[in-house]
Design a protein around this nucleic acid. Structure first.
Lengths: 138, 138
DNA sequence: TATTGTTATACTCTATAACTATA
DNA sequence: TATAGTTATAGAGTATAACAATA
């Protein structure tokens, strides 16, 4: 339809379009099992770091402290995480048994998504994608 | 701080983080010359497709028709684009002289941004990034 | 009948400021 | 004095529905 060539030659543009398209795809897949992409990401991070705090999670994922509140409340209300005091100021977060079951579903969906994602990349480029991407933001 | 390993091994996660980080960077750079990232993108697309329509631009960039209205109004109010009727239903969009001057600035900023972006990618991965990304969404 | 451009509005996501309590 | 958790709210960005006019 339109000439999009000068945009398509820009890695930054391709990066945004690819991220938007794939995030929309994964969001739709996770919606089918009733969980949001951010929530699933937080859940995975907590599972690998039992006893971590809201602040620590927020720092790693670049989520503001204030925005962690309703997010963790959702996970707690859904019975996926539980909190217990570390001291009188902080509280440690852990994934519940129910959360682990849900996490198994999440991991299945994500594994399938990631497999189909990487399959779309021509073989000779495949192994370069992850290191190239991580070099861009880490 | 936290163990982020299982997330970092997911191309989809790395893709989102890389896109968010680089988009924030470019947004800040373009802000210094007083233009938004979306507006700059639309301006580039119109420049390469003089006489195109609002609908056509929206379709290529996945922007809803309704959201094109205030966007094009901004560009028009800034004197960067002009519209003239194609028939009594559609109108063709073109970049004005002032728009072309602004576009030169935009291209300079973006070229610098893209150069620094690709420099962060280890050399052996560099040539693989663009084709891998475009394979993901095109 | 489908498309263009538009208006108005709802919704989601994120950012900011301020506050309390505790390390 | 800095940090953790929280509340309330503002703002930006996007989505949805409806409309008139024209192809």
């Amino acid at each position: 339809m339109l000439n999009e060539q000068s945009l398509l030659s820009l890695p930054g543009y391709a990066l945004r379009r690819a991220a938007n398209a794939t995030a929309a795809d994964l969001t739709a897949r996770l919606d089918r099992i009733g969980i949001r992409l951010v929530d699933a990401t937080v859940l995975m991070l907590i599972a690998d770091n039992p006893g971590t705090t809201s602040s620590a999670v927020g720092k790693v994922l670049d989520i503001q402290r204030a925005n962690m509140v309703p997010l963790l409340k959702r996970l707690e209300d859904a019975g996926l995480i539980e909190r217990e005091p570390i001291d009188r100021k902080s509280q440690g977060i852990a994934v519940t048994a129910g959360g682990k079951a849900r996490l198994a579903e999440v991991r299945r969906v994500i594994a399938e998504f990631e497999a189909e994602l990487i399959e779309r990349v021509p073989q000779r480029h495949r192994d370069h994608l992850l290191p190239a991407l991580n070099a861009l933001w880490r």
